[in-house]
Design a binder for these strands. Structure first.
Ligand SMILES: [Mn+2]
Ligand SMILES: [Mn+2]
Ligand SMILES: [Zn+2]
Ligand SMILES: [Zn+2]
Lengths: 136, 136
DNA sequence: TTCTTGACTTAGACTCCGTCCATCGTAGGA
DNA sequence: TCCTACGATGGACGGAGTCTAAGTCAAGAA
């Protein structure tokens, strides 16, 4: 993640303290924070950072492919910096905990042409649901 | 779907005109309406039906397993009466159109025990994304 | 049939998540 | 050092969904 800042600079980003702090908050694996959680953690280091800036920065990171947006069912989207190792998610249906998982097999290959209805299918997203050890 | 009303009566539901109309609107396969679309169609037959009642009825149908809730990424949830034939969804990333699809293979079987982290995994939901013929 | 009652419906206020906008500030090149 | 276009700010705004208090009515009892 330390080289994320380098990659962004290389793409012509102005390096502001706000963007630096958001990138720092997203450091690490198995991080799946909501925008407001990112904002809260960023605000510990940079108290006056605004929600709008967090949303803007997250949106930019997503469209650069540096962060993945994970939509979880009615609640706020989560932002996942683990964008360079494709994976799927296992979600606890009770408490909402999210884990990265790596299933075998390619779900895209499991969708026959006859079942594509002329769509240009580009992505298959698998969400496993169940009860986590603490909730079971 | 005609026997849906029977099943509901059997479960002790009061049969109101509002519930009847919502059930009628959801009749058919490949129906994936938002709550507001359900409300609009229901209001053609029963002009004074309220949004709250539509939400209540849809929620009840979901928890009875008669309708499936399909969360599509930031937009409004869609309600799918095709609950008794398991299937997955193909979503247009541009216009949001939803199609039912039937992939081969079982994604649950593709998740090794070592990748389950002690969860009691009970469900795998696959969302295929791409551009529909009109959007491509 | 009429009565009774609690389940159901309603309108609108409210919450949550996210976007937009006008204005201000500043990173970084000249 | 100065300039300016890019970025930050906060507050208004919007869509989707929930909640509540008051009114209505389905359906069983008599
Ligand atoms: Mn992840
Ligand atoms: Mn469907
Ligand atoms: Zn849990
Ligand atoms: Zn489309």
């Amino acid at each position: 993640m330390s080289d994320l800042l380098e990659r962004l600079r290389g793409r012509g980003w102005r390096m502001t303290s706000q963007r630096r702090v958001v990138a720092e908050v997203l450091d690490g694996d198995h991080v799946h924070l909501t925008a407001d959680e990112v904002h809260a953690r960023a605000a510990q280091r940079l108290p006056e950072i605004s929600r709008a800036t967090v949303y803007n920065t997250l949106g930019e990171l997503v469209s650069l492919g540096e962060v993945i947006e994970v939509a979880t069912d009615g609640r706020a989207k989560r932002y996942d910096p683990n964008a360079h190792h494709p994976h799927q998610h296992l979600v606890c249906s009770r408490c909402g905990t999210v884990r990265d998982v790596h299933p075998t097999g390619d779900p895209l290959a499991d969708l026959p042409t006859a079942e594509r209805f002329g769509f240009m299918v580009s992505q298959a997203e698998v969400t496993y649901r169940g009860l986590c050890p603490s909730c079971a």
